[in-house]
Nucleic acid binder design. Structure first.
Lengths: 262, 262
DNA sequence: TCAAAAGTGTTCCTCCTACACCCATGG
DNA sequence: CCATGGGTGTAGGAGGAACACTTTTGA
């Protein structure tokens, strides 16, 4: 087991793949690029690239994220390793082991990638067609993980701009989970968790013209939620999403993705 | 980004490292091997090895697990990918990217490795000296993850033999968490979660001579815990008698991992 | 008869849920 | 004025923590 020899074995390529999410107008969107070459030419795929010899996978992920989004400063963004995908046949050309990362962006600028990405675009997560390679599974795994982490971490503020209202934060939760939440209770839970959000003194914003102006908040220093903010249990037998009529025409509840992989 | 060329880049070695735990006599133990060569000669390290060209990382992990433990059938064991460690300097000899896995064994046989392991042994997790490479961090990450998963999965039965008593299951929890639990409440929680354990009809075992014989249970089919079995909040070093919101923000007890990267 | 460990019951308190209700703003 | 969305209050219930208590065994 100690016989290291740099070229005694078939070389592995090590890459990173990025599952980048944003919430815009109540819709969960993923950053995807269109492939120009075989295999999977014309299909959408996750952004990513090779890990360079002198950098860690996380450094590579952050570099790729900056290239694909065109953002100059990605240091404040949430970026977390998801898991590694290593099936021998996941890339038909050669052996590629890919370390997948999940990233969250606030209401997103158009990618307009400064990098080598052919055409990077935000696409709605629901109904995104079959992706190249095993990227469907990676994206679904990332979504599951984000949804689960919403329950017991302060992750959701990663989808929000620097200053946001509690209504916007709630909409982030509802979009990612695909369920409606009770506004008064959501409000109390968030405010009761010290360090989740902190008020911006005196500031308020008109939220779409009508209605009372909402107070503004910033993300706090906390990273964990004690106690957790559990999502409502899905109705077991009958998957009808909402028994009560929701007059809001915006986001369809999108009863997708309640199957954990792994 | 599409320029694949098998030898155009410095080759990466891809390995798996195994964090294998067991609970014996109320002590959490980890499977370690003693290194015979530089670097880190004489130090303890995690078992592991190269991923072969035709196998996935998970297959490699299962193969290594069988080799190091000497068990012929490792198909029923819990084995889960932990995360990937890819710092460029984590192995001084060459670039090695390692996919770490966590495995759980019931009260363990001596390793008596049939494989190439120099000397594999169970060592108590607490006070295990500095390990080779970054294996300290991997082992600590694995421990954190196992502890966290105990809260919302049925993982703990992976430490138990095929038939076990609730007292033994509770001792597994107490050993991994390092806290004492209330026996009546623990019992109720476990039995209230359908599919966590199922009784073995009519069977009972004398647990150490004295005391009433305990009923025996098998692991059930469930894999998730709803609602979760939360571990008691670590006692704050500063007991604040006031129920008013005293901002004690930090209180990150030990979690050496799993933070937001900034 | 005592110690030890399994198993049961009960009380109190916290948190979650669900709604009802008031406040501010634009049309 | 009313529709819309922000913000507050409150009653009921489910679940957890703490602890008293009974049962069954070996010494």
């Amino acid at each position: 087991m100690e016989g290291y020899d740099k070229h005694a074995f078939e070389p592995f390529a090590v890459t990173v793949d990025l599952a980048v999410f944003t919430v815009r107008a109540g819709v969960l969107q993923a950053l995807l690029i269109e492939r120009g070459q075989e295999p999977y030419a014309g299909r959408w795929a996750l952004p990513g690239g090779f890990v360079l010899p002198a950098e860690s996978a996380e450094t590579a992920a952050r570099r790729e994220l900056a290239e694909e989004t065109g953002l100059s400063d990605v240091s404040g963004l949430y970026l977390e390793q998801l898991r590694t995908y290593s099936e021998p046949d996941r890339d038909p050309r050669m052996r590629v082991v890919s370390v997948a990362y999940t990233a969250l962006l606030p209401d997103a600028p158009e990618p307009r990638g400064g990098g080598d990405a052919a055409s990077a675009r935000w696409l709605p997560y629901d109904g995104v067609g079959p992706l190249a390679f095993d990227h469907d599974r990676i994206l679904a795994d990332a979504h599951d993980r984000v949804g689960a982490k919403f329950e017991y971490t302060c992750l959701a503020t990663g989808f929000c701009p620097p200053e946001f209202t509690l209504g916007e934060l709630q909409q982030v939760y509802e979009t990612v989970w695909g369920t409606a939440l009770d506004r008064p209770n959501f409000r109390r839970k968030v405010l009761a968790t010290s360090g989740f959000v902190e008020p911006v003194p005196g500031a308020a914003r008109l939220t779409g013209g009508r209605g009372k102006p909402a107070a503004l908040y910033r993300a706090g220093a906390a990273t964990a939620l004690h106690p957790p903010l559990l999502r409502p249990a899905p109705a077991p037998s009958q998957p009808s999403p909402s028994p009560s009529p929701s007059p809001s025409p915006s986001s369809a509840p999108s009863s997708s993705s309640e199957g954990r992989s792994s």
